[in-house]
Design a protein around this nucleic acid. Structure first.
Lengths: 195, 195
DNA sequence: TTGCAACCACTACAGCCAGAGTACTACAAC
DNA sequence: GTTGTAGTACTCTGGCTGTAGTGGTTGCAA
């Protein structure tokens, strides 16, 4: 088992690329080699088998999807009102299209997890932690909306993401901003205090 | 190209089964043969290639997912209020778990559509029509909630479906009913007229 | 009822292709 | 000089595909 960290990371990154481009069907050691621009057989030296490869992809993909703290700070430099929440959601939505590869690979992983219990356990753990972090962040930042509002927004944004990634024609791009505005408005509910 | 309709339908049904169980990666002619309990080589006689197989799956899967009109009528035998909308959503949610295979296959198809323009076009067409039907049904039935409410609910239910199917541990099953109630309540907004 | 024709199920085969793994060489770093 | 990794090339394996060939069934007509 070879252990050059940069190369290993490059291979995992290539695997994410392949996963998004060709799907689980196309994810083979040879395809990873090709995508990473390394000679055939290299991936065999870095991953003991397909499960191992997927596990390492799972570990790395979150870093690829994770938001840049600077960017978050930039978006958050505004009063804690509904408009800011809507901004955040639009920003998340934009990230999906700008990082299409990462999110598509994530979807492929989710489906793959359907038939790989260990992968499912690990993905569940990380997604659960991310969601809890998001809820905590929302509540602690003084943004309007309770826990239920965050959960509902999360679900709707997940649905929107799935639509955009796979069948962008069903919910037209022109409608998304309006839908996000309505989503925030309605899930947060009647204005109590501003904070 | 052999054309025994029952057998063809059985093969397509078997393909849906395989798609849900083994994913796009496992969907081969031989796997379809095996799942349908027919001798190897049969699928080759019924589908000219993989694209053809996927196209026929697309055509048939909607019938498999489509709700039973009698069941709809049964659920709809109630006053047109929010409670009924929530009932409908819970019913849809239950159908996802009871027809897991169909919905999982649908997800696989969506991802496959990502790299097959014709499949994407066809899936988009059908999903769009279904969504429009749902909106029309909702509004014409006199159920509370405007078009935006239906769209938001659709997105959130889609997100919930994805979570349940792939990572059921992220949004616990105990929470779903409560979330659905809140979803309906908040997306529909303040009660104007009851109808 | 018998004979014929068309169609289809089924078996079996053979080719093919891609992926996997590995031995071997070359090179670079320490 | 030793160790570890990059790169090359080779073989093996397995699965998938497509099809030829055979047998059986159905339907029709004489």
């Amino acid at each position: 088992m070879v252990r050059n960290p940069e190369r290993r990371a490059a291979l995992v990154d290539a695997a994410i690329e392949v996963l998004a481009r060709d799907g689980a069907r196309g994810l083979t050691f040879r395809a990873v080699d090709a995508a990473a621009g390394v000679p055939g057989g290299t991936a065999s030296n870095y991953f003991s088998n397909r499960d191992d490869l997927l596990a390492q992809v799972t570990g790395q993909i979150h870093q690829r999807i994770a938001p840049d703290p600077d960017e978050v700070a930039e978006v958050m430099a505004a009063p804690r009102d509904r408009a800011l929440v809507a901004d955040l959601m639009r920003w998340i939505n934009r990230r999906v299209t700008e990082n299409r590869t990462g999110y598509l690979a994530m979807l492929e992983l989710r489906l793959e997890a359907t038939r790989r219990p260990e992968l499912q356990a690990e993905l569940t753990r990380v997604m659960r932690a991310t969601l809890d972090d998001d809820i905590g962040f929302h509540l602690e930042s003084g943004l309007p909306g309770d826990r239920t509002a965050v959960l509902l927004t999360y679900l709707a944004m997940t649905g929107l993401m799935l639509e955009q990634l796979t069948l962008p024609g069903v919910v037209p791009a022109e409608e998304t901003d309006g839908l996000i505005a309505a989503l925030v408005d309605r899930t947060i509910g009647p204005a109590g205090e501003p904070g």
